[in-house]
């Protein structure tokens, strides 16, 4: 029996037989189909995935002509902060443009939440103006809605994470509704200023990290921004594969937000006026790469089919079938990219 070198969702290497690989692909796609109530992948798509997973090449690539564009989240946090390269943000952006040849880039602050940016907005707009003089590629400005920051002890509002375990449900819901009002104001304010300073796009990153209220606040902010600036480009990047119901009774466009999966999330984002949708599917660290990949591609395919706007799939550590490890292996990353584009029909990554 032939053995294929592959990995688990935490990146640790393993070898599996062809039968095991095929079984994991099938179980993975069925898991997505069952959870999302969407079609599973067809046999020929599973065969294509099998081929991608089992190629002997260390890295693989999309076929010529299938290339897609990339956008970044936490753009300027990567080189100067996470990689510890002592360079300023505009050098980081130019390195991306001129050396890495990224299609786009994002200016971001270490304190990556809209709430925190209010106080330093003038420094941030100045940085954007400066960066725009020197760059050719489109530059986003990005941050997280991060609704949790509006609660005690970081903010003025009662903390629903504390209220919920005490079964103070109506209080927890009221707190979330109150936090939304503050968050919307901050997102609209910061995004407006950055757009006026020349940002080519605004990235709402990790939408939903605090649950459904976080999503509703972001949708409303997009709606307001789009009315104010019809030409503004907004990327709406999610935080998880389904919207966590911390509130449970929040609606947008008549749809309950809690529990929506990517193919449903993209429709509300579109309705609010988002330009690009950032789909997220979580990686399960315990399962194999094949299982995670089949599952992710199934969700992504349903999402791109439902979408009228471009979908950029989030392929960072621990999402988009990428192993949840600090140094995701290139064999897995390149395979995930190829599969997401060729079978998932992603418009970008």
């Amino acid at each position: 029996m032939s053995e294929f070198y592959t990995r688990y969702g935490d990146g640790s290497p393993t070898r599996v037989s062809a039968d095991e690989m095929r079984r994991d692909l099938e179980v993975g796609t069925n898991d997505a189909a069952d959870r999302g109530k969407i079609p599973a992948l067809s046999q020929s798509e599973l065969d294509h995935l099998f081929d991608i997973c089992t190629r002997p090449d260390k890295t693989v690539s999309v076929e010529r002509g299938n290339e897609v564009v990339v956008t970044f989240d936490a753009g300027t946090l990567k080189l100067p902060i996470r990689a510890g390269v002592p360079m300023d943000r505009s050098s980081a952006i130019l390195t991306h443009e001129r050396a890495f040849c990224s299609d786009t880039m994002e200016l971001a602050h270490v304190d990556y939440s809209y709430k925190q940016l209010k106080a330093i907005i003038h420094e941030e707009t100045a940085a954007m103006e400066h960066v725009q003089l020197n760059t050719i590629i489109p530059i986003f400005y990005g941050a997280m809605p991060n609704l949790g920051l509006y609660t005690k002890p970081d903010g003025p509002i009662e903390n629903w994470s504390e209220l919920l375990p005490l079964a103070k449900i109506s209080e927890a819901k009221a707190a979330q509704e109150e936090a939304m009002e503050h968050a919307i104001k901050d997102m609209v304010y910061v995004a407006s200023r950055m757009y006026e300073a020349g940002a080519d796009g605004i990235n709402f990153d990790t939408v939903g990290a605090s649950g459904d209220a976080d999503v509703l606040a972001s949708l409303k902010a997009v709606e307001i921004l789009k009315n104010k600036y019809p030409d503004i480009a907004i990327e709406f990047g999610m935080s998880g594969e389904f919207i966590l119901g911390m509130h449970g009774d929040l609606f947008f466009d008549g749809k309950r937000l809690a529990g929506l999966y990517p193919h449903q999330q993209v429709k509300v984002a579109e309705k609010a006026g988002a330009t690009i949708f950032g789909a997220v599917i979580n990686t399960n660290s315990s399962r194999t790469f094949a299982w995670n990949l089949a599952r992710t591609v199934t969700f992504v395919k349903a999402c791109t089919e439902a979408a009228s706007i471009p979908v950029h799939v989030n392929v960072g550590m621990g999402v988009g079938a990428i192993p949840n490890s600090n140094t995701p292996a290139v064999d897995a990353v390149s395979r995930a990219d190829k599969a997401l584009v060729e079978i998932g029909k992603a418009d970008g990554l």
Partner: peptide, 15 residues
């Protein structure tokens, strides 16, 4: 875990 019930319901059911 599947997004079919939400936190308030989970908390209520634990009560």
């Amino acid at each position: 875990g599947r997004g079919e019930v939400f936190l308030p319901q989970l908390i209520m059911s634990s009560e």
